[in-house]
């Protein structure tokens, strides 16, 4: 399996402006199990960074450490230079929003209400203003609704505003999760497997959406298994294997790295692995993956 090359890969693009996200030395242990070990990661503003790795590599655990759902055993996470507290709602308030691997919408609220909930940190009308219904309250509600409708139009869900979230088709639920996360006006959006279970068409639509999010000035960190999606989308890719960062660099660099192939497919047999052979296997894997996804959707 992998050797202890861990964090030796050179950081990429360090000379830019101050990073939106800087995670340094993040370690998470569950009892005797070290799920994430000493991971450093930065995301610069306007960047789309991919985080890949085999199942159980600790990607989602790392995400949870970033968003305050888990308290990292060691290390710290800073957003625009400020160290983040280990409270999920404060992280969102600071400017990091996330989606979930298994969709976690508020199933029995309408599409619009879901996005309005995302506005929670950017509004401050409390119980008393709700009870008194002064002009300030009405204005805040109107503004929130207008902002939420803009986001629904952005994600193409505007005509479904009064549907229950649970009744949306799968692909639109994913989109709604992104819209809801964007409602908190984040500087960094964390996407946990946004294309899991999607057809090829839906995947490419998601790609367009993520690129559009970046256009709006939000940096994106995305976990994905779909290699084609990741390599087409990201400016930079980090590979997590058994809780450690194996490689980090441009998609081409990562794609060509033998250790990454080894981590996904196992150690090649003795002697020459053969580039042609590896490419063939890779090709077969992505195609197979697509077919499985399609089968799952049918």
């Amino acid at each position: 399996m992998i050797t202890k090359t861990a964090t030796s890969a050179a950081p990429y693009g360090k000379s830019g402006p101050e990073p939106v996200l800087r995670a340094s030395g993040v370690t998470k242990r569950f009892g005797g199990l070290t799920a994430v070990r000493d991971v450093d990661l930065t995301v610069d503003s306007g960047e789309i960074v991919g985080l890949i790795g085999p199942n159980g590599a600790g990607k989602t655990t790392f995400f949870n450490c970033l968003t305050g759902l888990y308290i990292p055993t060691e290390g710290e996470v800073a957003y625009k230079g400020k160290v983040l507290p280990h409270r999920s709602h404060l992280v969102t308030q600071a400017g990091i929003a996330r989606t979930f691997q298994n969709i976690r919408l508020f199933a029995n609220m309408t599409v619009l209400e879901n996005v309005l909930v995302g506005r929670h940190t950017r509004t401050k009308e409390g119980l008393f203003s709700a009870l008194l219904r002064g002009p300030g309250f009405r204005k805040a509600e109107r503004d929130s609704e207008q902002r939420a409708m803009e986001l629904l139009e952005f994600t193409g869900l505007a005509n479904k505003r009064d549907h229950l979230a649970r009744n949306l088709p799968y692909g639109e639920q994913r989109k709604l999760e992104i819209a809801r996360a964007l409602a908190s006006e984040p500087g960094l959006l964390l996407l946990d497997e946004p294309t899991a279970g999607m057809t090829a068409g839906e995947t490419s639509a998601t790609r367009e959406l993520v690129l559009a999010v970046r256009e709006k000035g939000t940096a994106v960190l995305v976990i994905e298994h779909d290699m084609r999606f990741i390599f087409n989308l990201c400016d930079r890719v980090a590979v997590l294997v058994q809780g450690q960062k194996l490689v980090e660099g441009s998609p081409e660099l990562v794609q060509a790295d033998e250790r990454v192939v080894a981590a996904y497919l196992g150690t090649p047999f003795e002697g020459e692995p053969g580039e042609a052979e590896a490419a063939e296997v890779r090709e077969a894997e992505t195609r197979g993956g697509d077919e499985i996804h399609k089968g799952g959707r049918a």
Partner: peptide, 13 residues
């Protein structure tokens, strides 16, 4: 509906 998701949306549960 979902307290974890609500907290991730910035709600102090």
């Amino acid at each position: 509906e979902d307290e974890t998701a609500a907290r991730a949306m910035g709600i102090n549960g």
